[in-house]
Design a protein around this nucleic acid. Structure first.
Lengths: 244, 244
DNA sequence: CAAAATATAAATGTCAGACATTTATCACAG
DNA sequence: CTGTGATAAATGTCTGACATTTATATTTTG
């Protein structure tokens, strides 16, 4: 069956769209194999390079993967949360870097999202979640930890917090928000005193979570948000300095 | 300057990555023009079709756009929230459809995110936001509205609610969550009684927002979440029926 | 002299055919 | 029965060409 294309628009774009639609509609099942490039070329009445451009578009979105060899071809990917997360992070990072979103906005969004997870996390946190939180707190207390290391551990802490809510969709969103924010966070220089304060709040959070104390947890998070904003003020000052 | 590539991996993938890195690092400014396909081919020591595959990968992520003609070429896109939103919706939709996420999980995530916006929305909602909310409520009360129309208005209502928080990053996340959920919501059949109940809760929410009553708003939202879950039960039953 | 028509050049979009490489499968020899 | 090589199918890549679009320079014309 040949499929007509609109000759005023790019073929590769239309072909990619057509295949994407088939995938979304379920006509091509997960792990199912697409027709070979040659067959697709015949079906859409275009050349193989054009088909390949279309397939690369889909590959860029992790919708398909390709395998070489006799039984090779293009296969429909099962989009995993991990892949979707990568995507989200890439998009979020670009969005922040190209639209000059200020630290305050990102910070506010992030903590708002996180606060949304707290009630669920208090209900559902298991011993493994608590252990993860405690482990990160320990790491953050270690001597000789670089600012970047501290940041990374901070991210891990908050991801554990969100994961404790036991909702993969929430975790997905949060991971995107937190990771996209990391480049900004990495610009902060953490003094010994500010680290102590942050770790103290982390401990409060972990304790509250362990006891299932939603209100206490919210307060701790609120304090953490306020303090992070305060530290972020430095960034703006430094940025202004660089630009001026 | 020629750039070396790893001959064991796909060239187009590596080239796309290299260009993406340059964009993210800011070496290629927004609306800046990339070298022509021929120049890129020379730089990476590959053929033009290979370069084109790489560019299509980037185009699929809205990172670049291309123009034909004498002064044409590939230009770095300013990633807008709208485009990023499309992306997020596509990814979220696929994620839900291919991983068999249940209605409860999506619903929970969505309302958790929305609840996170309430305090901000109560603080910042302007008259235009309130007007949007009221307008949707009116629409939802209209006679002869189809289920799909009701759903669409519901989405619009909740988006207005989130926009009232005045944080574009939050709005971005929420739009993804809500829109991805719409196909599931569209499976619900709304009786006159259930519509009345939902609209009633919407009114409560709008009133609370107008008065800046965070607690009241949260309660209303909580009730809405619970009722939506209840209605969602139908979906599961029907699905089971279809599958069995 | 000015404005419209035309030629030119540069870039992307597309095609055709070929070769290289990878990989599963099957036949065959030991 | 097992290992090895031939085979075939598919993707990955290259070359060279032509088509199309579009800005710019040039020429022609009123």
């Amino acid at each position: 069956m040949k499929t007509e294309l609109d000759s005023t628009r790019e073929y590769s774009q239309q072909i990619a769209q057509a295949i994407r639609d088939e995938i979304v509609a379920g006509a091509l099942p997960v792990n199912g194999r697409l027709p070979s490039e040659g067959e697709l070329a015949a079906r859409f009445n275009v050349s193989r390079p054009t088909v390949r451009e279309a397939l690369k578009r889909l590959a860029a979105q992790n919708l398909i993967r390709t395998q070489r060899g006799a039984t090779g071809g293009a296969f429909v990917n099962q989009l995993s949360f991990a892949q979707a997360q990568e995507h989200l992070v890439t998009t979020a990072t670009l969005l922040l870097s190209m639209n000059a979103i200020d630290f305050e906005t990102v910070c506010e969004a992030r903590f708002a999202l996180e606060r949304a997870c707290l009630p669920l996390a208090c209900m559902r946190r298991g011993p493994d979640h608590l252990a993860s939180l405690r482990a990160e707190i320990l790491r953050q207390n270690a001597d000789g930890l670089s600012d970047e290391g501290f940041c990374a551990s901070d991210v891990a802490f908050h991801r554990a917090l969100v994961d404790a809510a036991g909702n993969p969709v929430l975790s997905w969103h949060m991971a995107g928000a937190v990771e996209a924010m990391q480049p900004l966070m990495n610009m902060i220089t953490f003094t010994a005193r500010s680290r102590a304060r942050i770790v103290g709040l982390h401990s409060r959070l972990a304790d509250a979570l362990e006891q299932g104390a939603v209100v206490e947890a919210s307060c701790a998070l609120e304090a953490l948000a306020a303090y992070t904003l305060e530290l972020g003020g430095e960034i703006r000052a430094r940025r202004a300095g660089v630009l001026g």
